[in-house]
């Protein structure tokens, strides 16, 4: 699974767990760390979230990801930190226990770049158009869209440096401000290299709000095949 999709699932489940922990208040994801142990995933992937701490202003949970198609072996691990919002006037969106059936795979589904309205391209800047379907219930760009944009930007930054396949892996992401207007730029720069990959720093800016810095991610991009 591409990192953006992995983070989207982790962010959704982790946010859900933190949200349940702080009821009746609400939360917004502040930061997350993802460690990807294996890229050779079979699927489907199972996600399990556990709340580690519920404080006055934040909640923290861990998410274990296992490959159910490969004997349940661990493929990733994450920590999600959510900030508690001072709002208790919103209705609960679902009765509990919450059960959301897994939809059947859709072979006609668009690829992530298309679904998330990410413009084609290469190089250090990647752009996303903020279309309404990408907004969350707060009206701001969904965290999964930001993660996918950062993922795409990180891998595109490798253009010309490694012409074989690459994949984003370990990620430390901070959500700094909401994305409200767009378009959204993800600007990538390489900050270091080592034997297991290249570390790319991606900053996400809302061009429609004075180019405000809205998120930053440090992503390790791994070469998963020989240069062509």
């Amino acid at each position: 699974m591409a990192l953006g999709g992995l983070i989207t699932a982790i962010d959704s489940l982790g946010g859900f767990a933190c949200g349940l922990a702080v009821l009746p208040q609400w939360i917004v994801t502040a930061s997350l760390t993802v460690r990807v142990a294996r890229l050779d995933q079979v699927g489907p992937l199972g996600f399990e979230a556990r709340v580690l701490r519920r404080g006055r202003v934040s909640a923290v949970c861990r998410v274990d990801v296992r490959d159910e198609g490969a004997g349940g072996r661990a493929v990733a691990w994450a920590v999600v930190t959510s900030a508690v919002l001072d709002r208790d006037d919103l209705p609960l969106p679902s009765p509990r226990p919450v059960v959301v059936p897994m939809p059947a795979p859709d072979p006609g589904a668009p690829i992530p770049e298309q679904f998330f309205a990410i413009e084609p391209g290469a190089g250090p800047v990647t752009r996303l158009e903020l279309v309404d379907r990408l907004r969350n219930p707060w009206g701001i760009l969904h965290g999964g869209a930001i993660a996918t944009l950062a993922d795409v930007a990180a891998t595109r930054s490798m253009t010309g440096r490694h012409d074989g396949p690459v994949a984003s892996a370990d990620t430390v992401m901070h959500f700094l401000a909401p994305v409200r207007v767009g378009p959204v730029d993800a600007r990538a720069r390489i900050v270091g290299r080592r034997t297991d990959g290249t570390v790319v720093l991606v900053s996400v800016h809302d061009r429609g709000v004075d180019d405000r810095l809205c998120a930053q991610a440090a992503i390790t991009v791994r070469e998963v095949g020989p240069a062509q």
Binding site: R38, A74, V75
Partner: peptide, 13 residues
Amino acid sequence: RAVAGDPAGAIAV
């Protein structure tokens, strides 16, 4: 509490 990896490296939690 958790150790996993592949040829590129390994993680421990």
